[in-house]
Amino acid sequence: MSRNTHSFLRSVILLGFGLFIIKLLISGDIQKFIAPRMMPYMYFALAVIAVLGLIQFFKSDSEEGHACECGHNHDYSSSKTRSILVYSLFIVPIITGMLFSDHVLGSSQAANKGFKYELRTASADDDNYSNSEVSEGEEDGTETGSDPVHQSEEQDDPAILSTKDRYPDLYEELSSADRFTMSEDNYIGTISLLEEEVDQYIGKEIKMNGFVFREDGFPDDRLVVGRFGISCCVADGGVYGVLVQGDGQNFDQYKNDTWIEVTGTVKKVEHNDWELPMIEPTEIKTIDAPKEPYVYEEFEFAG
């Protein structure tokens, strides 16, 4: 293949990437791959790809190829098969991306991606581990009195971030309200708070949504409702969810991956020796999957 052909193909591929990103931006599907805080980088990438594409395009037009002897292998392979293979690598993600950009991870990945409760059941000695950690902490706290970690747990040292300190407003709201509706913005925070100290919130009425999934061996009246939480991209996502336990009701009608909205009372449940928050539902209704199915990890960087 000639140098010009390479340049031309490369400009087409760069354009393809540009179109793919623009398509994601227009449809909003970009949020199904990347967390909102990474968006500035995507705009940067789009701009650079556009400039590079234009440069490649005009390079393919210019008469003499770009003869540079700077020693790096430009990989203008002259073998046709090899070139086709290499360029296919770039073309395939553009095509599958444009075709399937609205796919959302669901319950099958929830199991795979390490839902906390499931992981906890799988380990035999997690119990010992958590116990030893606690006793160690108490020792430190009483003997030296200087260990910042455990001071924070006992004295709320403001310099250290416990879940409460991380979400102060949310904590305030959640502990004072009798009824609380979870939204995209406070989803991760609320579940973290509930898990940290469920005793404090028992009896409150909570409304939340999410998709349904189950562990193996769940009885008919138990399911988990949760959403994927993303910090940078979907590859690092994990499931944030709450157990829903009815009193002998049959939840069979809510199949895995159905989106539901649950209203109910917060209770505490022992699940494989872990104290977990649980919702006893008063109302469950099926809803449409939201436009933005994921929730995003919020943390502020100083820079």
Partner: peptide, 23 residues
């Protein structure tokens, strides 16, 4: 069934990495 899950994870890694590779 999992092929689209894989495609989504694959694309998200590529999309996330592209700006940094460009940088």
């Amino acid at each position: 069934p999992s092929l689209l899950d894989m495609n989504t994870i694959f694309l998200s890694i590529v999309l996330e990495a592209i700006p940094f590779v460009l940088l």
